[in-house]
């Protein structure tokens, strides 16, 4: 199982903060997960547009071609604006 979490605008557009996704072998990297989720509806597609979207695996920001393993926590969010 993958644990997927969303923050800020991404969370607001999707309308939920987290979900569990059964792991599949086809999920070879982060980009595959993103496209899988974006296919669900226009709302998801909009929230997960790759332009400016960031992704973290197990709480570390990672490039889109990073491999995914069963049990990973994957977070999608917009560019950060703290400080």
């Amino acid at each position: 199982m993958l644990s997927i979490v969303f923050f800020a605008q991404t969370r607001e557009i999707i309308g939920q903060g987290e979900l569990s996704l059964p792991f599949e072998q086809a999920f070879s990297n982060l980009e595959n997960i993103r496209t899988h989720l974006a296919q669900q509806s226009d709302k998801w597609d909009l929230a997960l547009t790759r332009d400016k979207l960031l992704v973290a695996v197990n709480q570390e920001m990672s490039p889109w071609d990073t491999p995914v393993n069963d049990g990973d926590e994957i977070a999608f969010f917009p560019p950060v604006t703290g400080g």
Partner: peptide, 25 residues
């Protein structure tokens, strides 16, 4: 502060006269 601003996962949302808006990076 430069690294915090670009790497630490915080997001600011402002309340203005026009309503709430997320701040752009």
């Amino acid at each position: 502060i430069d690294y915090l601003k670009t790497q630490a996962p915080f997001w600011k949302k402002e309340q203005t006269e026009a309503g709430y808006q997320w701040i752009d990076a």
